[in-house]
């Protein structure tokens, strides 16, 4: 890993200033994705700005019709939160299955969303629930936030401060784990909301997380596990690799959607 200048600001405003002043500055949150990247020398930032000392970015609170989670809240904190378990149990369930215990103790929701790994878990919950990503500049709707693998609507140096999740009527998440990496080979988040059924899929799409319109239509007509399993999902824009073909992944989308409906609370 190349060396860099390290900053640990106490406020979001100071963090934005530090990023702005650096020639090639990067934010570090839990570091669970960034540090392996730096160690492989896939990136060589001049400065790292650690968000770890900014109290405003941490914590979970009930807000309006849902839950707001600070960007620096760890996966372990979301998994064990009674507020999350009460409002959106599927979200706590999802967080408790990210990576392993050690990763969950450091990794954060803000880091996961900014990174937008095509096999990460949180993007499916944010898109499935129609959440809103809040930054130091604006609010971004989930449908506009994810823009292809490892790509988001965030501007250079823009900082995620929190995510607001509206409470669904019911939601479920099922993940088929890729056993070596623990990421999702395919993960499906199903939410029955006032505005209709939303189904978001991670791990399968060539462009990262996406909404499975075929399954949404089937579940909109009949919210049942059988309806989800019966929905035909096109393999056209899905991934094929040594872990599974696009056709296999398409099949998993309907099967996992069915399981997510059966488990939905």
């Amino acid at each position: 890993m190349h060396n860099f200048a390290f900053h640990k600001p106490g406020s979001v405003a100071d963090a934005a200033k530090a990023i702005g002043a650096a020639s090639d500055g990067k934010i570090i949150a839990g570091g669970q994705t960034l540090l392996p990247t730096l160690r492989q020398r896939l990136a060589e930032p001049s400065d790292l700005v650690d968000l770890g000392a900014i109290a405003d970015l941490k914590g979970i609170k009930a807000e309006g019709d849902g839950v707001t989670i600070g960007a620096m809240t760890t996966h372990a904190e979301v998994a064990s939160s009674s507020v999350v378990a009460g409002a959106i149990p599927a979200l706590a369930h999802l967080a408790s299955h990210i990576g392993d215990r050690q990763v969950r103790h450091r990794g954060t929701i803000g880091g996961s969303l900014a990174n937008n790994d095509p096999a990460a878990d949180y993007p499916s919950a944010v898109l499935g629930l129609g959440a809103t990503v809040r930054t130091n500049k604006r609010e971004i709707k989930a449908d506009d936030f994810f823009q292809g693998m490892f790509t988001t609507a965030l501007d250079e140096g823009e900082i995620i401060t929190a995510v607001h999740f509206p409470k669904p009527e019911k939601a479920g998440y099922e993940k088929f784990v890729q056993p070596a990496s623990r990421f999702a080979l395919v993960g499906v988040f199903v939410a029955k909301t006032k505005g209709g059924v939303r189904v978001a899929v991670t791990g399968a799409g060539q462009e990262g997380v996406f909404r499975a319109k075929e399954v949404e239509a089937a579940l909109g007509a009949n919210f049942s596990a059988d309806a989800a399993k019966g929905a035909k999902v096109s393999a056209d824009s899905l991934n094929s690799d040594l872990h599974g073909s696009a056709v296999y992944r398409a099949h998993l989308v309907s099967v996992l959607a069915g399981r997510a409906v059966a488990a939905a609370k």
Partner: peptide, 21 residues
């Protein structure tokens, strides 16, 4: 996980965190 230690009582991988953090 061979490098696991406790930081403030919680298990973390010490190869995946900076000392300065």
């Amino acid at each position: 996980g061979a490098c696991t230690v406790h930081v403030n009582g919680k298990a973390v991988k010490s190869c995946n965190v900076l000392a300065v953090q």
